[in-house]
């Protein structure tokens, strides 16, 4: 696990990854555990949601029937909670792995080795991607395993589509945090600015769904690409997924260039 920076970075996160995985499994357990009760009292719940203003409706999972398996999982997991968790994970990882280590001073000895700087950042990005993908796999597997016994009838490919989109969303903001950290070397800035951008993008998508004036700008928000096509029902929209991938790859690429060019650890 110490052969290179990619493996070393994953190794550093092994305990944290374990806790995150347990947390996701716990979330899934609670979610599927409540399904039988929801299924019974479903019609009342649907009426309740219908009375909500549109903005709150989209918070609760949009136009999906909350008592359908897809609507339930969307509302409970994929509309809000899972994106938040993956964003927090990605942003924390992305801001810490370069800027955090630079500020702690531990990167200095690494950079004194005969390894190009861009490669250090590239390997750290790869570790971010693999770690986020691992959590996505945990989310997918626990949902797929947990849904059947309680009669939550959802295809595992629909689950895979939804978790893939959560992973991609987490990576967009993880890569943004990595980029700001690689550009400035300031972990707090990377953390705070990326979080601010994420909240702004979320609100942009939310307002765009209820306001005609904001609607034209909806395509700027990664959250639009994340959930507009409702992957839980319709599978992955290749164009939407590709958009998130391209943004992530560009941000990762900018990170390499930014870190290569500047003074480190000043």
């Amino acid at each position: 696990m110490l052969r290179n920076t990619f493996l070393k970075t994953l190794r550093d996160r092994r305990r944290s990854l374990l806790w995150w995985a347990l947390g996701l499994v716990g979330l899934v357990a609670i979610t599927v555990g409540f399904w039988p009760a929801i299924e019974e009292s479903g019609q009342e719940l649907n009426r309740l949601v219908e009375d909500l203003p549109p903005a709150l409706q989209s918070l609760a999972g949009g136009d999906l029937d909350l008592t359908s398996p897809a609507g339930y999982l969307n509302g409970r997991v994929f509309a809000f909670l899972a994106p938040i968790l993956f964003l927090v994970f990605g942003i924390a990882f992305g801001s810490r792995t370069v800027a955090g280590e630079e500020q702690a001073g531990t990167l200095e000895l690494v950079l004194a080795r005969p390894v190009p700087r861009w490669r250090i950042v590239a390997e750290k990005f790869a570790a971010l991607a693999v770690a986020t993908g691992f959590l996505g796999a945990v989310l997918w597997a626990s949902l797929a395993l947990g849904a059947a016994p309680v009669g939550l009838d959802i295809g595992s490919s629909a689950l895979a589509a939804a978790t893939l989109m959560v992973v991609l969303l987490g990576l967009v903001f993880g890569a943004l945090a990595l980029f700001i950290g690689s550009l400035t070397g300031k972990r707090g800035l990377a953390l705070g600015l990326t979080t601010t951008v994420a909240v702004a993008m979320y609100l942009l998508d939310l307002y765009a769904s209820i306001s005609e004036a904001v609607e034209p700008f909806r395509g700027l928000s990664p959250f639009y690409y994340y959930d507009a096509a409702v992957p839980l029902r319709n599978g992955v929209d290749p164009l939407h997924a590709a958009f998130l991938v391209v943004v992530t790859v560009f941000l990762a690429g900018f990170s390499l260039v930014a870190f290569e060019r500047r003074d480190v650890g000043v």
Binding site: L2, R3, G105, L109, V110, R113, P114, V115
Partner: peptide, 21 residues
């Protein structure tokens, strides 16, 4: 100002830094 990865054992750190060479 020497700053080492505090959570690692010395041997692990040296192996990592050695691999980077």
């Amino acid at each position: 100002e020497l700053r080492l990865y505090e959570g690692m054992r010395s041997e692990d750190l040296l192996r990592y830094l050695g691999h980077l060479r």
